[in-house]
Amino acid sequence: MASVVNVILSGGVGSRLWPLSRKSKPKQYIPLFEGRSLFELTVARNQTFTDQTLMVGGIKNVDLAREFLPATKSQTIVEAAPRNTAAAIAFAALACDPDDILIVTPSDHLIENQEAYENIMREGIKYAEEGFLVTFGIQPTRPETGYGYIEYQGNDVLSFREKPNEDTAKEFLKKGNFLWNSGIFCFKASIYLEELFRFEPKVFRTSKEVYESANGGQFSADLSAKIPSKSIDYAVMERSERIKVIPSNFIWSDMGSYDSLYDYLKVKGHQVDGSGNMVIGTQKYVSFLGVENTILVHTEDAILVVHKRSSQDVKHLYEELENHNSPLL
């Protein structure tokens, strides 16, 4: 009998949430959300309507995740090298029975309104049982430039759009038939592999070779390096004719940058001064003069000061530090 499997992807480092998020402990494992981490919340959220949990990630992520995974009916796949989401999901599909339904979820999203979420996921499972690849779109509430968009009509996808500039994002909202791309997917394992083979045969073949040649569950780093680094969006979702989108009404944020974290913490009662400035990570007295909507992030070895509207640019700072092999990562 086919199972419903929650495939949790946990390979990212959360570069836009540096210095809170580090390679040694990415953002999804930091207990910022009323004492719980995004990974912990992701596992719990999907337990009520899935039969198994399968996590795909690097060795450090697997070690950090282990205490939050179910004691039974859970499995981990340890990647030797990160090769993007198309390959990660291929590993999961190869580990499952062909008719198993995979609900693929990032491990670093915040979702509220559990009842609405479960209803939407069950609708996605029905489409997946019919052979469709399902993506879930979020009704946009602002002209967000940090998310991709889905142009849709009913449950049909008209187009996928990359992260827009502000003017384009405003135009999307004005048109009213665009959704934020949540990065959550649902499909049969076999259907995903069929479409991956159809559009990206090299990703399919090299991922299959890595999976089948594993020694004691250990993937070959040399073989893994041969897998083309492609996202599931580019490799399959933007090219297949089997796609359905479900407009979704649960509360969602990818928690990918400080503007999202700021909005969440503010709603939860985190202190903000009269000019909209916020301090994260310290109880020391901090005074902001002549600035507004600014976030100060304090850690033991680094301090970041960023304007809320520049939150996406933290990634560039992270990349600069990475280019200099900084120990601060």
Rank of each mutant, 00 (worst) to 15 (best):
N181L: 09
K208A: 15
K170T: 13
T206K: 12
N155D: 09
F172H: 15
V157G: 05
R205G: 05
E194W: 02
N215W: 03
D222Y: 07
I184Y: 05
E200T: 02
S224A: 13
F204C: 06
V203S: 10
F219I: 00
F185I: 04
L196N: 08
D156I: 05
S190E: 13
N165Y: 01
R198F: 05
T206R: 11
N177P: 02
S182G: 08
A169R: 01
E194Y: 12
V210E: 04
E171F: 03
I150W: 10
L179T: 01
D156S: 08
N155H: 10
K226D: 14
V210H: 05
S213M: 09
F187V: 10
F199Y: 15
D167E: 14
L158R: 13
K188M: 14
F219Y: 14
A214E: 15
F187Y: 14
P164N: 03
Y211G: 04
V203K: 07
Y149Q: 00
F204M: 08
E212H: 13
F219W: 14
V210Q: 06
S213I: 08
V203T: 09
A169M: 03
A225E: 15
N155L: 04
E171L: 08
V157F: 04
R205C: 12
E209N: 11
V157T: 10
L196M: 06
N215F: 10
A225L: 14
P164T: 01
G154H: 04
S220Q: 10
A225Y: 13
F187D: 11
W180E: 04
Y211V: 11
Y149H: 07
G176C: 07
N215K: 15
R161A: 10
L173V: 08
Y192H: 15
G176D: 06
F187A: 15
F160P: 10
S207G: 10
L158Q: 12
S224E: 07
F178A: 04
F204S: 07
L193R: 11
S213F: 08
T206N: 11
E200C: 07
K202P: 03
A214C: 13
L196T: 07
C186V: 11
Y192L: 09
R198N: 09
L179I: 00
E200L: 01
A214Y: 02
W180G: 04
F197A: 12
F172W: 01
K208S: 13
G183N: 06
I184Q: 14
I150D: 13
L179C: 02
I191F: 09
G217K: 04
P164Q: 01
S220N: 07
R198G: 05
E212K: 13
V157W: 05
A225S: 15
I191S: 11
Y152H: 08
L179F: 06
Y152K: 06
N165A: 00
V203H: 04
V157S: 09
N165Q: 02
F185D: 04
E166I: 12
D167Y: 03
I184S: 01
G216E: 09
R161E: 15
E195C: 05
L158Y: 06
V203M: 08
K208C: 13
A221F: 13
I150G: 12
A169F: 05
K202T: 12
S190Y: 02
Y192A: 05
A169D: 04
S182R: 02
Y211E: 03
E166G: 02
E171I: 08
K174H: 03
S182A: 10
L223Y: 13
G217H: 05
G154E: 03
A169G: 07
